[in-house]
Amino acid sequence: MEKTWEETRSVQKRSFLSKLMYSKKLAPYVFVSPFILSFLVLTLYPFISAINMSFQRVLPGQTEYIGLANYDRVFNPVFFTALQNTTVYVIWTVVILTLVPMVFAVFLNHRLIRFTNFFRASIFIPALTSVIVAGTIFRMIFGESDAAFANQVLQVFGMEPIEWRYSAGTAMFLMVALACWRWMGVNVLYYLAALQNVSHDLYEAADIDGANAWQKFRHVTFPAIKPIFIFLSTITTINGFRMFEESFVFFETTSPGNIGLTIVGYIYTEGIQRNDMGFGAAIGIVLLLIILVVSVIQLYLTGAFKKGEE
């Protein structure tokens, strides 16, 4: 008797499983379940927890709600230094990493250029390095001594050698240069991919109409790569506000006069190093709001919200 019961049970079990395996209706839910799970545990929960934390004083073993006290503390001179550094970094990287690759891609797409494959590959290689490895060698090239490579180049042009990591302007230059060096090739390839969609007939038609190079770029090339331009400027902005490693590799977490401090660096020093999680979380929420507002303004300005015009 018992055995039969077990058998029926196993048949039932198998039939449920096989139903699951053969059901066109249920299968997609099984397939997306890892995503749902990871969304709940690794995004939604931490997100709510971050908001919650930002209203708390988090101490080991005891947490208490302290209302807006963390947010009151956020807007202090150190935060504004971090915000200023980050904003300057964002502006430089966005301008350089959207416009220069556009020019490079247009040139690389020119019918008269040769060795395209070699050029494409070599400008892409920096993207393969980690910020730590790349930053290490940048620190050697831009060393403090008069004999270091960058300083020697300056001296050739009759300029004074610079202690790159010790003044605000040059520190920013190092971080921006590192980021631009690493991402330039990737962005060029984004534009190049978009340029492949422009038919050569359009250029010939423009030629017949007597268009000059600028007019051809303005009316034929740019409309084709505009979506990538918007995409790259949005992504570069967001990544810029998230910057941490480019600063860490040059300054770790302390820089003279906080010239290398970024918002995420501030979250790290306050939240992790000083173990003030509530305060760190509050900085994070402020950062999220900043990113949100800037992205919306940017998408509005670039006309991503207006569809089908022009």
Partner: peptide
Amino acid sequence: VSLTALFPVISLVVASFSPSTDLMRFGLTA
């Protein structure tokens, strides 16, 4: 442009074959 892109990578390889105490003291020199 390619030279600029590859220069740091080449420099790293050169650095790895140079005396490291000099590197840390003077940076990468000519």
